[in-house]
Nucleic acid binder design. Structure first.
Length: 109
DNA sequence: TTTCTGACTCGAA
DNA sequence: CTTCGAGCCAGAA
């Protein structure tokens, strides 16, 4: 691809799409991978437009493994349901064993 | 052009 | 240990 022609949002999408099944990552991790370590907020903001695209936004959480963006899904528990269906243990919007299911873009890409 | 906002993060109290 | 505040950047109005 031609990253130079892609907007920041589009770059975020490209990375988010590559999150493996049953794994999750953080906004900050994606931001750092894109070279914008301090644009974690923008990553989340970008996910707003993830609807209608093939982006598994539910696999992206904050660095604590907390489903901070679940409110942006249809139901307040949809995001958690999706993660649990992938084998990820989630309790009260908090991912358990977050370190084990965490997927670092820089590590895989 | 200026202003505002946000699905974050980190450091300090 | 938990809670609170300020900084950060990119995009839309």
């Amino acid at each position: 691809m031609k990253p130079e022609t892609l907007s920041f949002f589009e770059r975020v999408y490209e990375v988010a799409k590559q999150i493996p099944y049953g794994r999750v990552t953080s906004y900050g991790a994606i931001a750092r991978y894109l070279g914008a370590a301090r644009s974690a907020r923008m990553v989340g903001y970008a996910m707003n437009g993830s609807v209608g695209k093939d982006i598994p936004a539910h696999r992206v959480v904050n660095r604590k493994g907390l489903l901070t963006g679940k409110q942006h899904f249809e139901g307040t528990n949809l995001m958690q349901q999706l993660l649990e269906s992938e084998g990820i243990e989630v309790i009260d919007s908090q991912i358990k064993n977050f370190e084990k299911v965490f997927w670092d873009p820089a590590e895989h890409l």
